[in-house]
Design a binder for these strands. Structure first.
Lengths: 199, 199
DNA sequence: GCATAAAACAATCGACCGTTCTTTTCTTAT
DNA sequence: ATAAGAAAAGAACGGTCGATTGTTTTATGC
């Protein structure tokens, strides 16, 4: 026996990415073994190397894919947003929704940065820095026209992002709050925290 | 050669805990090897087992030690705090200060929970739940007497804790803000976010 | 100062790690 | 129909892992 009926490269790579995300979410990058991953995909461990160059390469692939999606989705969400308060509300709503829908991706990206090798780490943090920059710019804009009261835009941004990013560590879709209620709650909190007039 | 001059059980265990914290902070629990740890402590790897039962036991030890300190320190900080707004301000100030001073402990505890075996995991999350409970109670108190406007106390608490706990992932003591300034900024943000009258 | 316990050593275990290589089978374009 | 290439199986590799054992050395209480 060797190659099984119906196998296809693209589908297998997608299965590897998806299962890899699950396993890293559950056990961490170091804690996941390629044998585990192969077993879950339904192939032998050696066969993984028809699709990835190395374990590190898989992590980088997952990271890049996620960050590209995140930036693109944020672009779409912010298109046509008006004054700073509305921009901020839109940003928060987007961020919450994205984190609820993609818990695993976000958690992996936030917690496994340190497992990236130095060369990859630099590029990865730069992508994250760009994302943070988007929020800082919104805060600066609101501070400039007097909408917001902010002591330090970057630190405020880190605080907001920390608050929202924590969601993926505890949110349970079967819980008390649905996505919309959660988003509304956090939009309200954030706007108040920078003393913006609520929409 | 065997036991070295000046060796002492308690001192060695302390060195193991300290070095273990550093290594887990840097490489993660799965990423740290006991050989690495022993080398940093200055003993052979087998000698570690004179002080710990297993690698897992070390992680649990670090977790317990940290949580006990955290609860005790919070008790002290909250002693004699007055009305809800002051309690909340005290809580935030305490939490920020603690996170700044004990970056490594907090990061390890927050990010390596999943590496605890099921039996240990349950007890560990219970300790964390108790800590969250302290904040939820403060929020409930403020909501009851009209000081705070809160949609959902637990979710608000998770938001606040996420915001503050993120500090240990980016804070640099050599940076723009010192501990006091950082604390003041976050106290202000949190109080405003629940629409409490500032002190 | 001697007996006992504590703490370090060296050596080793089996298991598992990421990765490579060869062989076989399936798919697809001609 | 067939050749070519992709994708799988499967065996094997050198290393490293956490953990155990037996021995030797040091510290300490009587």
């Amino acid at each position: 026996m060797a190659r099984t009926i119906g196998s296809s490269g693209a589908k297998t790579m997608e299965a590897i990415s998806s299962a890899g995300l699950d396993l890293i979410f559950e056990f961490g990058y170091e804690g996941m073994s390629l044998r585990q991953l192969a077993a879950r995909v339904g192939i032998r461990q050696g066969s993984l190397y028809n699709h990835i160059q190395s374990k590190q390469d898989l992590l980088l692939h997952l990271y890049d894919r996620h960050m590209r999606m995140l930036h693109a989705a944020l672009d779409t969400a912010l298109t046509g947003a008006g004054p700073p308060a509305e921009q901020l509300a839109t940003f928060v709503d987007f961020h919450v929704s994205y984190h609820v829908q993609r818990k695993r991706e976000v958690f992996v990206v936030n917690s496994e940065l340190r497992s990236l090798e130095p060369a990859n780490y630099g590029r990865a943090t730069e992508l994250r820095r760009q994302y943070e920059r988007r929020l800082i710019d919104i805060l600066d804009g609101g501070a400039a026209d007097g909408t917001f009261e902010i002591a330090d835009a970057p630190v405020t941004a880190y605080g907001i992002l920390g608050m929202l990013s924590g969601i993926c560590t505890w949110y349970d879709p079967r819980g008390r709050l649905d996505r919309a209620a959660l988003s509304a709650l956090y939009v309200d909190m954030v706007l108040k925290s920078v003393r913006a007039v609520s929409r």
